[in-house]
Design a protein around this nucleic acid. Structure first.
Lengths: 154, 154
DNA sequence: CTGCCTGCAAACTCTTTGCACGAAT
DNA sequence: ATTCGTGCAAAGAGTTTGCAGGCAG
């Protein structure tokens, strides 16, 4: 999805929910959607302020749930204290696993098509309806182990 | 594994690591191992204090990593702010998924034998060695949705 | 003018840490 | 003696919230 199309979709989402398309919200959206890697709330704040320096931390935290609700952003919780976010360019793909390299501090996203099947099978046996699922692999970098440095490390 | 056997194993683990088997550590261990459900650090503190009222919150937090390192306790992070823990009675089973009912606030543990296979397959393609993996399903309670109350809810 | 939205700063939750005292070897 | 472990209280990180003012419909 192009950023233009995504911004449009976000605008429509806001209107439908009776929310206003303020300059801050749009700046935050643009900042988020032009970031490639996973990013934190703090990184998003930096970026958004370059587009609109009136953006505050509070508004970042208030806007993030709106963007994830609109499915334009995906929340990725790797259990590290802070949450990560990522533009969801290709529609609603929940069938994605995260592989987190603890050496490189990098998050890879890998297709895991069986997740949804497992999720619904297992849930129905418990009398539950699945809402979401996440599969996360923590791993060490082979190169790092041997050479003490990781090529992918920022 | 019986609690006696587990306590023994914990004692051995401590000695091997050059750590002391203090009364606080043993009280915390007993408190943890006699809890059935998933529990939080805070719940563990309550329970441990009933066995030894000198146990402090700090020691709880210092002892939890020791117990998980000894594989007698498993950490379960469902991404809810606080971490949960659970006795690992049947050895080191990492091939377990959590199904979290957001209505009941209950955590079910279900076997997911394919996880480890997926984890190692995917990691090796990235030049990584898997350390751990977790699969978590969030779900809603069917009964709760219809009747507004969940039978499993505490 | 009414209500949504904002920035600021304080509050909040869970966890970690510095410190001085106490216990074990 | 020396090292390890402890409780206490303060700090810390990330996130949320109360409030008074601002801007849009």
């Amino acid at each position: 999805m192009s950023i233009t199309a995504a911004r449009e979709k976000f605008g429509v989402f806001l209107v439908r929910k009776g929310l206003r398309a303020t300059s801050q919200r749009l700046a935050i959206f643009d900042a988020a959607f032009t970031l490639e890697e996973h990013f934190t709330a703090d990184q998003l704040l930096d970026r958004a302020r370059k587009l609109d320096d009136s953006v505050s931390r509070a508004t970042i935290y208030r806007t993030l749930p709106i963007m994830t609700a609109s499915a334009l952003l995906r929340e990725v919780d790797i259990g590290s204290g802070e949450k990560f976010y990522r533009p969801n360019r290709d529609g609603a793909t929940t069938q994605v696993a995260q592989v987190v390299c603890v050496d490189c501090e990098k998050i890879f996203e890998i297709s895991a098509p069986f997740m949804e099947w497992y999720s619904s099978t297992v849930s129905s046996k418990l009398g539950l309806t699945p809402a979401s699922q996440r599969l996360q692999v923590s791993a060490n970098c082979d190169v790092f182990r041997q050479s003490g440095a990781c090529p992918r490390r920022g």
